[in-house]
Computed example of a mutant assay.
Amino acid sequence: MMIIRPVQQEDLAAISALAAKTGVGVTSLPSNDERLAARIERVLKTWRDEVTQAEQGYLFILEDTEQKKVVGISAIEVAVGRTEPWYNYRVGTLVHASKELNVYTQMPTLFLSNDHTGYSELCTLFLDPDYRHSKNGQLLSKARFLFMAAFQERFADKIIAEMRGFSDEAGRSPFWESLGRHFFSIDFSEADYLTGIGQKSFIAELMPKHPLYVDFLSPEARAAIGQVHPHTAPARAILESEGMKYEGYVDIFDAGPTLEAYVSDLRAVKQSRVWPVMIDDQAKPTNNTTYLLANDKFRDYRALLAQVAFTETAICLPGSVAAALGITEGDTIWAVTLFAEEKH
């Protein structure tokens, strides 16, 4: 069975193995055991209510319980930019006009921005390539939405997700080569790694503060603005299907798009419902719809996918599913259809 659960300290080695498979561009999952261990400790303190809101974050594990193997990871940061500046580019327009010369031009421009400071963030999504099937990616991504639905008071009103930007098979980012390299004189992979381990001060020290004209960039760099890495396209599609949108903000290194939405507007949050549980091993699924199910236990959160039966007042679960969720008859769980086109 595939199940989502909170991270544990003993997951460090497995997470480190996943980090080694990510490649360039996943800045929030660096291949650095010291940094990963510190993050695990920080999120465990979050679940114990031992850190301030500015430091809070949640890290979820996708586990193959039959193999007892960690195969995926996803996360939520509660309030970005509160402990260190949060940078991105806002894609905007500057107008140049002269009535006397009868000249009027609109120039696409990149403005350095901290506009998302204080927002919550979906991040650190990575699934082992061997498990990219059977809706595992959907479970890994969307389980966070039911967690936010159950505990909305712990998050900002708006949520963002920075998508990995376009780079080629060699890890070369055309946006970085056309822009960032001129100011940092280091390879994209090195800048990406430094950001991932928290050394972000160099951004403020070296990045130009004035607007940058997009037309000055190479054609390849211009084409990369707002585009995702091919491996990230499925993750973007999942988030967009839940109501997140690109609103013109991109990463300052690779120009990957930032998606955003109000938490209350997310499809899985709006359509999810709390159901009392009946345990019945004989109950047949009401239909062929796959449901995302989650308990409402903060420190012992669990989520999984299942086809289930409903009565007018309850959800009927097999004993194995109830046990995996850590619930008994009479408890309540959150349920929502996995896909937007399906409704119960």
Rank of each mutant, 00 (worst) to 15 (best):
M2F: 14
I3D: 03
Q8L: 10
Q9V: 04
I15C: 05
T22W: 07
T22A: 06
T27G: 12
D33K: 14
T46F: 01
F60R: 06
D64Q: 03
V71Q: 07
G72L: 09
S74H: 01
S74M: 00
G81K: 07
G81T: 08
R82H: 04
Y89V: 04
G92I: 10
T93M: 13
L94K: 13
K99I: 06
T105M: 07
T109Q: 10
L110W: 02
L112W: 00
D115E: 15
Y119L: 05
E121P: 02
L122V: 14
P129R: 06
H133V: 08
S134Y: 12
S134D: 14
S134F: 12
N136L: 03
Q138I: 00
L140S: 12
L140I: 09
M148A: 14
A149R: 15
Q152I: 05
Q152F: 05
K158N: 11
E162S: 02
G165Q: 05
F166L: 11
E169S: 14
P174D: 03
W176R: 02
E177C: 03
H182E: 07
F183I: 02
F184T: 09
E190N: 08
Y193K: 10
T195Y: 12
T195C: 13
S201M: 06
I203V: 14
A204M: 05
P208R: 03
P211W: 00
L212H: 08
D215S: 09
L217S: 10
L217D: 07
S241D: 13
Y246Q: 05
G248V: 02
Y249V: 02
V263W: 07
K270E: 08
V274N: 08
V274I: 13
W275C: 01
D280L: 02
T289D: 13
T289F: 11
Y291F: 15
F298N: 03
L305K: 10
F310E: 09
I315A: 06
F339T: 09
